[in-house]
Each structure stands twice: as structure tokens, then as C-alpha cells.
């Protein structure tokens, strides 16, 4: 019973693992190249979601802007009142990297369509095999 409570209390981590596996499945098992890119996007956002969730705190923690920051320096800052801003900053960089990989993938997709006139991976592989067979 204790183990069950532990598993249920960490439900958000299970959801992130489910999302990550959905993206991984789409990257491996789908034949269409656009579906593979969708899977890559889902995989990356699942990892970002996991990191952001490690920053949040229970019990009314607010965004990291210090109250009474100007003027009175007498207040003692209690870190339990603010969410941790370090994973947010790291994941901002990860979002930018995600969009740049997405742009490169779309560009490669357009080049492949121009050359082979299809978006299905198995059709491209069969065209390549017949070209090599000649």
C-alpha cells in the first residue's frame, strides 16, 4: 500500500515518461517523415516538461521576483517562497535548440521531397535500392 501511494504521489513523472515514450515510438515506428519530426518535437518537450517540474515547489511558491527588492534591504529572503529559476533558464536554451533542429529537419524534408517526390521512408529506401541495383 505504501508503494502504491508513492507511485500515485509521483503521477507527474509517470506522465512525462508516457509522453517521452509516445515521441520515441513515433520516431522509430512511423514510416512518414513528418510524423517522425512530430515525434521528435514531443520527445523534446517531454524532457523540458520534466526539468520545469523539478523547479516547482508545493505550498504557494511564487515566480522568482524578490518582494521589496528596492530600498529596504533588511528583509531576509526565504527561498521556500520562490520557485527555482535555474531550470527555467536552462530550458529556455533547450527550447531555442528545439526550434533550430526543427527548422533544419523541415529543410531536409523539403530537399528529400524535391529529389524523390515522396515523404514515406520505405518508398525512399526502395527508390534508393533500385538506383543502386542498376
Amino acid at each position: 500500500m505504501e508503494a502504491m501511494d508513492y507511485i500515485i504521489s509521483k503521477y507527474n513523472y509517470w506522465m512525462y515518461i508516457i509522453l517521452m515514450m509516445i515521441g520515441f515510438y513515433a520516431m522509430i515506428a512511423k514510416k512518414n517523415l513528418v510524423k517522425k519530426i512530430v515525434g521528435m518535437n514531443i520527445f523534446q518537450t517531454a524532457i523540458i516538461l520534466f526539468f520545469i517540474s523539478t523547479a516547482s515547489k508545493k505550498g504557494g511558491a511564487s515566480i522568482p521576483i524578490i518582494q521589496n527588492g528596492h530600498g529596504s534591504a533588511t528583509d531576509i529572503i526565504n527561498t521556500a517562497h520562490y520557485v527555482n529559476p535555474l531550470p527555467h533558464v536552462l530550458m529556455l536554451t533547450a527550447i531555442v535548440v528545439m526550434v533550430s533542429t526543427f527548422g533544419v529537419a523541415i529543410a531536409l524534408l523539403l530537399m528529400l521531397y524535391k529529389k524523390y517526390n515522396t515523404l514515406e521512408e520505405d518508398e525512399i529506401i526502395s527508390i534508393l535500392k533500385t538506383e543502386n541495383g542498376k
Binding site: T45, A55, V83, H88, L92, I95, V96, V99
Partner: peptide, 13 residues
């Protein structure tokens, strides 16, 4: 979750 900076970057980008 309190990550508004990440949220608006995700919304635009």
C-alpha cells in the same frame, strides 16, 4: 508551474 518565461517562449516559438 510558475515558469512564465519558458511559457511565453514556448507560446511564440
Amino acid at each position: 508551474m510558475g515558469a512564465v518565461d519558458v511559457a511565453f517562449t514556448e507560446a511564440t516559438v
